[in-house]
Design a protein around this nucleic acid. Structure first.
Lengths: 242, 242
DNA sequence: CGACCGATTGAAGACACTCAAGATGCGTGG
DNA sequence: CCACGCATCTTGAGTGTCTTCAATCGGTCG
């Protein structure tokens, strides 16, 4: 990253948070303009990633959290026996890396599912600023708590022993998160492969593929590869709680 | 709760953290003696619960977090369709209620599995003190992050499609947490019913019962009702990552 | 001792997995 | 532009595991 930017570029880098579409979902939510600037200054850099790029690896030293600006990521762990488990899919406005706060190393890996960009938040500075901006501390806790809530949703989904309920819940949940971002809630473009999705749902990819077919036969959705159109949200939701 | 305590009782209530066996796991971990006292003063009360008592209900207003002092709890949600999902079992030294930080209401219920006691941490005060005691803020984040890590372990377990792997992982995990509390790591007394455990693992209770039998036949454990003795930890762990 | 709750055990069936083949889409290069 | 190869997804057939339904056992408490 060249440090020699033009004046215009510097101005663009600065005060990006104030213009960012995600500011109401992200850390600056609810902050005064002056405080937003302080958050802005803390953001170390804004990085672009290609699909398949890794943001951080499990075991690597923990230095910073990352806010997703655009794109999508998956978070995953690998057990000692080599079994991979996808812990979540993350969309813009969500912060990744919370699981590392307890220790000095990342506990899972984060990989971009498509072309993505993130804002890097050096944790030492974040801690410092949080201590002086009360609203920021609170907003930060809200985001951490939201992560916990999302994880609980994931567990509740994994708890269903009807596979179709899991997929229905996943689609419904993704739809909700999409609309939170101001996107269409009934037209989803899945950024993850069937294999990723199957792993996330605790199924095998053939089953996921068949379930998409069944949901389509039932008239609840329309699928074409990774394009999903939700036709009957109510039934989908009902199917979710089996 | 009577407010008219004797001087001795008052003294006992005060400075309890300094004497508590859990102080190295709980919020005071790593704090100066004076700061431990401030945490101590914040603790609103220390409550006792019987098995089956509810600490807080999903939907009830969020006022405080709770540190488990003795006993054990389960955290659970009920979906709109009425499906119950147990999100976790909690042991002494763990804090409950983190999922409520994002909003104004508890997202899940907490119920005592046996005679238990908790320390109540009014959140407004906790926030205030965290802002002035830097070490406390950090320790608090560590505990939140540990909760996220535990949830990730839960998901990784639910991701196994061999039921016996899930139970093996559960037992191994519980064993680790027991030893963290200074208890025996090879002798577990389960505080939850087979039904609770089955729900937690995403199985039915008959399956769990059968799996205990199989693990016993394999010589990995010895089971009698809720008493479990681990005979072969290495194999149990290996079975965990399938 | 009898009633009740929790746990175990048994038999039958359903559902998801495994293994395998085929289809579809995409990028590359001729 | 089409042919080719590769990756991803779909579809099929058969098997195995977990669930379902039901009965029994064991422990606890009135």
């Amino acid at each position: 990253m060249p440090v020699t930017n033009t004046a215009v570029d510097l101005e663009q880098v600065r005060r990006q948070c104030a213009r960012c579409d995600l500011r109401e979902l992200c850390l600056p939510a609810g902050l005064e303009s002056a405080d937003v600037d302080r958050v802005d200054q803390m953001v170390a850099d804004r990085t672009n990633l290609a699909a398949g790029d890794t943001l951080y690896h499990a075991g690597s030293p923990f230095r910073a959290l990352y806010v997703i600006k655009t794109g999508a990521f998956k978070a995953q762990t690998v057990s000692e026996g080599g079994e991979l488990q996808i812990l979540g899919f993350h969309l813009p406005g969500e912060i990744m890396g919370f699981d590392a706060l307890a220790g000095e190393r990342h506990q899972c890996s984060a990989e971009a599912l498509e072309v993505s960009s993130v804002c890097r938040l050096p944790y030492a500075e974040l801690e410092r600023i949080c201590a002086t901006v009360p609203g920021l501390q609170r907003q930060f806790m809200r985001l951490v708590s939201r992560e916990i809530g999302d994880d609980h949703d994931h567990m509740a989904m994994m708890g269903r022993n009807q596979a179709i309920s899991r997929l229905a819940l996943f689609l419904h949940n993704l739809s909700k998160r999409q609309s939170r971002l101001g996107r269409s809630s009934d037209h989803l473009t899945l950024s993850m492969s069937r294999a990723d999705l199957a792993n996330y749902l605790g199924l095998v990819l053939e089953t996921v593929s068949r379930l998409f077919g069944r949901l389509q036969e039932m008239g609840l959705i329309e699928v074409r590869r990774r394009e999903v159109k939700i036709l009957d949200m109510a039934s989908l939701k009902e199917l979710g709680d089996n």
